[in-house]
């Protein structure tokens, strides 16, 4: 059964109090390497049928209008679970840009 992964992050310009709290815990645990944490969401949408562009485009539509709120969040990636997007690493690490090629 194909699965599409949708990743949503709080907008980079907004304060992310949850991420900040985790960053505080990291510091208290003795880690000094990682100084900043941002917390987002990952959705896994499974369905019966073909893993085609139509499914992907429906998932994108859902991601924009239901799974995220454009006022406070950005969709950073929509991709098939088994097909890692070419830009997934950079997408995850540069959510500030918020519209990687995978979208």
């Amino acid at each position: 059964m194909p699965t599409i992964v949708v990743e949503v992050m709080p907008k980079a310009v907004l304060l992310d109090p949850a991420g900040k709290a985790v960053a505080g815990a990291l510091a208290r645990s003795g880690t000094s390497r990682f100084t900043d944490v941002r917390l987002g969401k990952r959705f896994e949408l499974s369905f019966a049928g073909d893993a085609d562009d139509a499914a992907l485009s429906e998932a994108r539509e859902l991601a924009e209008h239901l799974l995220s709120n454009g006022v406070i969040e950005d969709v950073v990636s929509v991709h098939f679970a088994n097909a890692k997007p070419a830009t997934s690493t950079s997408a995850a690490s540069t959510s500030a840009n918020s519209t990687p090629a995978a979208l």
């Binding site: 907004l14 709120n69 406070i72």
Partner: peptide
Amino acid sequence: LAEAHLLPGGLIRNNHG
């Protein structure tokens, strides 16, 4: 009301956490 777009803007976690 904000999620339904009857009012603009959004509500996020309190800044002090």
